[in-house]
Design a protein around this nucleic acid. Structure first.
Lengths: 334, 334
DNA sequence: TTGTACGCGTTATCAG
DNA sequence: CTGATAACGCGTACAA
């Protein structure tokens, strides 16, 4: 392994450790050209790589941030992660990604591990189950940002889709296309997960705003594995829906699976809109109308804000809610 | 931030730093029960978290490994990453994932960053462009493992699909279903990327083994963006193929896009097999016949071997090639 | 330019 | 037997 230290370089170049350190940090103010060259030569000869761990210990920062996603299976998560990585890479910051699998205990464990590892800040898709922990991080003034979900009453900057609007756009578009029996399917809402709750609320409001009657039996909010059986029930109603809004990509796949099993035609028998874009939306037959989140933008802006907070260059008003506009991608499933 | 150090704990518990350290490392050999409890109490009271950076500096290991994938857009990469993370998490090892975007320079930069960060080992999907660097790591006895691709003549354990067999299975299955005009489409082969080269070679051998004539114009190997136009040419031939083997998931999506644009029916007009499973294979109409890699298994075994190498518990014969059997998932596209 | 204290745990050595 | 003292690892910062 790279056992050569700054000491070896100093010896070979016949200077002191500190001089080499100066060189590495480009503090050339009082350094002779010749010294510089000797050091440079020595570094190349030994193929020296500075030990970042030692540097971190002294500087008390690691140039690393942590990202804890609630569930990495969502395309939204992966897109946001890529965006965060792109921004961080530009600034030579490393990213450690952890997947909490929607389990608060796992999330807690990761937060503690990452803090012990002295990462400089955290972007969290909060499970919502670690209120105390979030609070203690705020007290420590530890830089954090929430993504996709909010935790009520915590002064942490949060980046979310305008979920209400997303649901409204979908419902309005269904109505415009002549539908009046519109259902919504989301993954389980038991732990009050922000996007699901807000999308269902938005759906309800939009139904009302369009003068339709709200039917509780048109609202399915279940664990992924239970969605199929509830869709069966939905279509056993005397008046099954003619349109379904899928609350996220995973729910959409469940719906498509059901639709296929039942040999329903899209959009003649059932119209579909999915929130979140999916990789196969355009090659599906018919192509799938979706509502997409500006995931890349959300990720870059969240990362930029976190890095600013870490560098303490942020202005005071940063602990607020950032809402992003959803985008309707009209294709062929409505 | 967690400004409380082992020192604070020692003070509160009225013992010395070293005693606390002993406690943390479970070296209880000579420790009174009462002392233990005082320390435990102090740790809880202060909510003390040991500074992993300081520990790493001393121990010369970081309990972190790096993964550098050539291209994170492949589902294969993401599945392998998840597997690696699962294994590492069990052993409290962190994973830093980097995406080289198929650029050797990026790969080089990441390797150097990760080594400077003192990660204990590396799993690399090699771009193949950094032969010298790979060699120097071998000399340093730095623990590395290659995934998905091999770099000729380097004694580094490598985990790959049996690509030859994958292609053979596909061709044989096409032939069994009555096809004799079989094409293959892969992403660009310019930099001799192992799976693509091997899959094309396997395809050629399988074509010959089945007594079919090998046609160079049935082999497309181009950058993602150029595949569509070459498919146009393929279908402008007087004898276009009746079956296509897509070399990976991204190529498959290109083919599906083309097929849809041309309104070809699957499998009547064109039969399809894709290597790599895709999330939508079963909900597509028709469902897509694929050849999958045991990605999860490959990831877990690679991670396990790397961790063993790091702990130096590996037996000598580890720098070898691990080949995995492909699996044909018969669905409806042939 | 250089000497040296420092950061924060780990570990070998030493004293009670 | 129990726990303290001190050196160490590697780079940084500041005084000299």
């Amino acid at each position: 392994m790279s056992k050569i230290t700054i000491h070896d370089v100093a010896n070979l170049a016949n200077v002191s450790k500190s001089t080499v350190s100066q060189y590495l940090n480009k503090r050339f103010t009082y350094m002779r050209e010749e010294t510089k060259q000797r050091i440079e030569e020595a570094i190349r000869e030994l193929n020296y790589q500075p030990n970042i761990v030692a540097r971190s210990l002294k500087q008390k920062r690691t140039s690393t941030i942590g990202v804890i996603v609630a569930n990495i299976l969502h395309t939204f998560s992966t897109k946001v992660i890529r965006a965060i990585e792109d921004i961080c890479q530009e600034q030579d910051v490393h990213v450690i990604v952890c997947n909490a699998d929607d389990q608060p205990e796992k999330e807690k464990r990761y937060i503690e591990m990452l803090q012990a590892k002295q990462v400089d800040g955290l972007i969290i898709f909060p499970t919502g189950g670690n209120y105390d922990l979030y609070e203690s991080m705020i007290q420590q003034k530890y830089p954090i940002i929430f993504m996709d979900r909010i935790v009520q009453a915590l002064p942490i900057p949060s980046f979310l889709l305008d979920n209400d609007k997303a649901a409204r756009i979908a419902v309005d578009y269904f109505v415009e296309k002549g539908h009046s029996h519109i259902a919504i399917v989301t993954t389980s809402i038991l732990r009050s997960i922000t996007p699901r709750v807000e999308r269902i609320d938005g759906y309800k409001r939009a139904i009302a705003a369009n003068g339709l009657t709200l039917r509780e039996d048109y609202i399915i909010s279940r664990d992924i594995g239970d969605i199929n059986s509830h869709l069966q029930k939905l279509f056993a109603l005397t008046e099954p829906p003619t349109a379904i809004l899928a609350g996220n990509d995973l729910a959409l796949i469940e719906v498509l699976d059901f639709v296929k099993g039942r040999c329903l035609r899209i959009p003649q028998d059932i119209a579909l809109i999915g929130i979140d874009d999916v990789s196969f939306a355009h090659i599906f037959s018919p192509s799938l109308t979706t509502i997409s989140q500006p995931a890349y933008q959300m990720g870059t802006e969240a990362a930029a804000l976190l890095l600013a907070k870490i560098k303490k260059t942020q202005n005071a008003d940063t602990d607020r809610l950032f809402r992003y506009a959803p985008l309707l991608n009209i294709r062929g499933s409505v």
